[in-house]
Design a protein around this nucleic acid. Structure first.
Length: 475
RNA sequence: GCUCCCAUCGUCUAGAGGCCUAGGACACAGCCCUCUCAAGGCUGGUACGAGGGUUCGAAUCCCUCUGGGAGCGCCA
């Protein structure tokens, strides 16, 4: 295998229990950027150890989300570099060896406690005002006691014996120096009675085995870190440097979660948000150092600074996302807008027509679905006018529109000439001339250039709408 | 309950004792530009959670409180 260890190897290690949230995506993006910025490698690993909740479909969707966001991985599922496999469900043999090593060393002990017993102990501790920790019941079992329980057919889990009176220290990439007393930890499970692995264990072990040098992960793992450090040190494995990112909150202030229906990356993508827009937004959430202006995705890494990560939780604000979305849409070329709008066009529309329309509407769209309104303006029914718009029509008056009608008959869809004629006939100019026309023709006061819009509306429709405005058609 | 973390405009953030009558961006309001909207330009309002210290001087350091969050799982 090639030399896999430049100075920096980072990773993203999601569990496939749902679609990616912006918070996960941000963690992935930052990890990716941290590697890229330093010429390092980025690794993707799936922690699919929860048979009940894991779904292959989520692996596929997360892979898709990541790739869509412009995140590429040097190693991962389907791309093994000799340190894989990159799905934990396929790493069982590796874990078994490590369990044996821990047992040989006496760093772990079998625990026969049942879920009910554990639950009772926790309740008692809570009642006594104690933190709920494993009481150590099985730690002191002697060989005979263990043998008799085994003989009775009881399946033990494996628990890590946390050393007493030890201070675990580490320097967090975003929090700085941390110190935790081992007395606060309580012996934790490393293998289930049924034989399954546990997060603390395989997560830490895989990072070490895969040569990960820095781990950026959610804040919620901060207080778990000492356990993993203890475990790794017992195994003689090199621990990565950890950096704990504050959680991303919803606009309302609650942590993002599927239960609360937080938006997912896949959903944003379905709605038509552009990857570069989400990227620009994420780059600035809980991180500073990027300029206020738009940054090309290719430049993200250059603007990422691991020492500029915030410690306070940030809110995911759709309004700010929309700002970057507008910036992103503006930067698309006509072909790209056309593809972006693909789902909005009638199926039989030829490409050139699509491109022309896409270019026409580009400046007035936030999301593809906004195009539907304009498609109606261009070829369908106009919605009823709002009072403010109706007032403009009324103010212009019947004569204005009859004049417009005859001007249109002469000039056709050439707005320049039509405006000239109208001006000559009605004496109106500027806004007083264009606004009634715009509203009569489109039903709204905003939109693309009228000069470009007019030729896109069938002549018959133009006449009908002008007649309507003039009050010639009372239907 | 216990342990830990966090706290600057509505939001994202700058700020590592005097440069802060707190800066920028988004959003909002007004004006300019313009056939409209957008873009662009200009202007404006809005923040250091509270209370105590330390100091000649605190958004910046310490303590308490308040508020938010996380962890303490045979979930990850």
């Amino acid at each position: 295998m090639p030399a896999v260890n430049p100075a920096i190897v980072t990773r993203f290690a999601p569990s496939p229990t749902g679609e990616l949230h912006p918070g996960n995506a941000r963690t992935a993006l930052f990890s990716f950027l941290l590697a890229r910025r330093n010429g390092g490698r980025f690794v993707l690993r799936f922690e699919d150890t929860d048979r009940a909740r894991d779904r292959d479909a989520f692996i596929a969707s997360q892979l898709e989300d990541l790739a869509w966001l412009g995140i590429s991985w040097d190693a991962g599922p389907e791309r093994d570099d000799g340190h894989g496999p990159y799905r934990q469900s396929e790493r069982g043999a590796i874990y078994q060896d490590l369990y044996q090593q821990l047992e040989r060393q006496g760093a772990v002990y079998p625990c026969f406690c049942t879920a009910a017993e554990l639950e009772m102990a926790r309740k008692a501790q809570a009642a006594a005002g104690q933190p709920p920790r494993y009481p150590g019941t099985c730690r002191s079992l002697d060989a005979a006691a263990r043998a008799s329980r085994l003989a009775a057919g009881r399946q033990p889990g494996l628990r890590f014996a946390v050393p007493e009176d030890q201070t675990i220290r580490f320097d967090d990439l975003v929090r700085g120096p941390q110190a935790v007393e081992s007395a606060q930890l309580g012996d934790f499970l490393v293998r289930r009675a049924a034989g399954g692995t546990v997060f603390f264990f395989c997560n830490a072990v895989d990072d070490a085995l895969m040569g990960i040098t820095q781990v950026l992960r959610g804040d919620d793992h901060l207080s778990n870190t000492p356990r993993q450090l203890l475990l790794l040190s017992a195994l003689g494995l090199r621990a990565p440097r950890y950096g704990h990112l504050p959680l991303l909150l919803d606009a309302g202030g609650a942590p993002q979660s599927k239960r609360r229906g937080s938006v997912t990356v896949a959903e944003l993508r379905r709605q038509g948000y552009l990857a570069a827009a989400l990227g620009n937004y994420l780059l600035r959430l809980g991180h500073h150092g990027a300029p206020d202006e738009w940054v090309q995705p290719a430049e993200f890494a250059r603007h990422f600074h691991a020492d500029h990560l915030g410690r306070a939780p940030a809110h995911f604000d759709p309004v700010q996302l929309d700002h970057w979305q507008r910036e992103a849409v503006r930067r698309l070329d006509a072909e790209q807008v056309t593809d972006w709008l693909a789902g909005e066009f009638p199926a039989d529309w030829p490409r050139p027509e699509r491109v022309a329309l896409a270019a026409l509407l580009q400046g007035n769209l936030l999301l593809p679905r906004d195009a539907a309104d304009w498609l109606a303006v261009l070829g369908g029914e106009l919605a009823a006018l709002a009072p403010a718009e109706q007032a403009v029509i009324d103010e212009a008056g019947r004569e204005f529109f009859t004049a417009a009608l005859s001007a249109f008959a002469e000039t056709g869809a050439d707005l320049g000439r039509l405006a000239q004629q109208l001006k000559a006939r009605t004496g109106r100019k500027g806004k007083a001339l264009f606004m009634p026309l715009r509203i009569a023709l489109t039903g709204r006061h905003d939109g693309p250039e009228l000069a470009a819009l007019l030729p896109a509306i069938p002549a018959a429709l133009v006449r009908t709408r002008l007649e309507n405005a003039a009050g010639l058609r009372k239907d």
